[in-house]
Design a binder for these strands. Structure first.
Length: 503
DNA sequence: CTGGGGACGGGGCCC
DNA sequence: GGGGCCCCGTCCCCA
């Protein structure tokens, strides 16, 4: 009996030891797994931050693109017209509950937008992933009308100049440059203030790289060497690059209805400043477009003509554009102006422009949201996923979409076959307006013709017509020798040349 | 590699 | 002159 008791005691002790060992092992496993789990979480967070930064960059790029379009619309006026519009701001985003409710508050009681006046966005949300883009024009208004601005500040690689500043919580974005540093030189300053709150240093690095890429490789038209040497030429809208804007040397006047936009964020901010270099601005159109004769009046939002503008004494306003980029805020546009209503794409844009021109207190809306919605042919937006494409579409569908060089002047005048219709993107000449408008869709990516059988879209009607043969199986061209049928005559001809040339 | 075929851009013609 | 259409060349993909 005693042996039994001892045995039981030993068994119990052994069981206890085993249990303790098991618990210890389990705890060790849990700890290890927990460590691994934490590591994975940390990595995931890092990845999320990286993706968020890239998203911010993309949004910044998009906002810059749309800002450029608005600037072009406002600045491309007949030379006799003084443009004093100011874009007060743009709010965009997808899915933000407060989208469209942001207010752009105009500073009371003045008609000039001062250089030191930051544009702030009254956000009220203070949510994360907000970044406010503030484009300020440090224009030398003191220069007065008629005085041509010579160049922007910053001689050293101004295209890439970008200052990033970290702000304190709730502080309005402050331009990183003091306009008084170069008092005698009018310039244009653009500051992009991001209220994001995470890793501004990294963001600075990445955005700077982005800037270099945008500015250096903004053209994807390999066949147009002229573009390559034209800094003022914007990238193809379909490209991932931002258009590059030049308005620094223009006579820039600011309209008084400047807006104050409270950032409302508590996150640190950084501001980007880009400088425009007059010397780098191409005047590619000067030889073909005589702006002094007002013959560019049909050409709105000229890419290159900006370089020509300073040849004139016209007053072009490239106003501060405050762009509020919210995480996923739904942009508000004219509620009845899009979503495949079957109207022309340009209508909304014109409405927008008109509203900007007529209503100084209009709440700025982002045209970006139009990009995926407007569809003149079908309600389904096709493969054109580039917002910039559609952005250019808006411009090109406006009344001013083609540059027409001066009649009787320049190298393009003369015979009836003269190519006096110039592409506003690549400066290529065409003999008639339809041709150049057709051609410009190459740059804009506009594909107004939609196949009813599939989702494919085409920029030209004849291409759509040809495409429809794919669905119908129409092969009207038959080889008289072998009976093989082809959808196009040229295929038949090639076929006969190759197979029946000896017959 | 070759041929067929789709997509696309430019030029020209016709109404 | 504008719009539509056609022709042609080129590029690219795929079997």
């Amino acid at each position: 009996m005693a042996n039994c008791m001892v045995f039981h005691t030993q068994i119990a002790s052994i069981m206890e030891v085993l249990a303790n060992a098991a618990v210890a092992e389990i705890c060790k496993l849990v700890d290890d797994d927990y460590a691994v789990f934490r590591l994975e979480i940390t990595q995931s967070r890092k990845e999320n931050r990286a993706l968020r930064r890239k998203l911010l960059e993309l949004k910044v790029a998009r906002e810059r693109a749309e800002r450029t379009m608005r600037e072009r619309v406002l600045t491309s006026r007949p030379s006799s017209v003084k443009i004093l519009d100011r874009y007060r701001g743009t709010a965009r985003g997808e899915g933000h509950p407060t989208g469209g409710q942001r207010s752009f508050v105009k500073p009371a009681g003045h008609n000039t937008w001062r250089d030191d006046q930051p544009i702030t966005v009254d956000e009220g949300g203070g949510t994360s992933n907000q970044h406010v883009i503030v484009i300020e024009s440090a224009d030398a208004e003191a220069a007065g009308p008629g005085v041509k601005q010579e160049r922007t500040e910053g001689e050293e690689d101004p295209w890439h100049s970008r200052d990033i500043q970290t702000g304190v919580a709730g502080a309005p974005p402050v331009a990183t440059e003091d306009p008084t540093t170069v008092p005698a030189q009018p310039r244009t300053r653009r500051s992009i203030t991001e209220v994001s709150g995470t890793q501004n240093a990294v963001l600075k690095s990445e955005t700077k790289t982005l800037t270099h890429r945008l500015l250096n490789t903004g053209s994807d038209h390999k066949s147009d060497p002229e573009r390559l040497g034209r800094p003022g030429c914007p990238p193809a809208p379909g490209s991932e690059y931002l258009p590059v804007f030049h308005h620094s040397q223009r006579m820039v006047h600011s309209r008084g209805d400047s807006d104050m936009l409270d950032t409302g964020g508590d996150d640190p901010s950084c501001s980007y400043t880009t400088e425009m270099d007059r010397d780098n601005i191409s005047l590619g159109l000067e030889t073909q477009t005589d702006l002094s004769r007002g013959d560019w009046n049909q050409y709105s939002s000229s890419v290159y003509s900006e370089g020509c503008l300073d040849k004139e004494e016209e007053v072009i306003v490239v106003d501060e554009v405050t762009v509020k980029v919210e995480g996923d805020a739904p942009p508000t546009w004219n509620a009845d102006s899009h979503l495949g209503d079957g109207h022309s794409q340009g209508r909304d844009f014109l409405d927008y422009r008109e509203s900007l021109e007529t209503d100084l207190n209009v709440t700025a809306h982002s045209p970006l949201h139009l990009f995926g919605d407007l569809d003149p042919v079908s309600t389904s937006m096709g493969p054109s996923d580039s917002h910039s494409h559609i952005l250019f579409d808006q411009v090109l569908n406006s009344n001013d979409r083609v540059r027409v060089p001066a009649q009787g002047g320049g190298a393009t005048s003369g015979n009836s076959k003269e190519k006096r219709f110039l592409c506003m993107f690549c400066n290529k000449g065409f003999s008639c307006l339809q041709k150049v408008e057709r051609h410009q869709r190459v740059h804009t990516g506009e594909k107004p013709y939609s196949c009813t059988q599939c989702e494919k879209r085409f920029s030209r009607q004849d291409h759509l017509k040809m495409h429809l043969k794919v669905h119908t199986g129409e092969r009207p061209f038959a080889c008289m020798h072998c009976g093989k049928r082809f959808s196009e005559k040229r295929y038949l001809r090639i076929h006969q040349q190759k197979n029946h040339s000896t017959l």
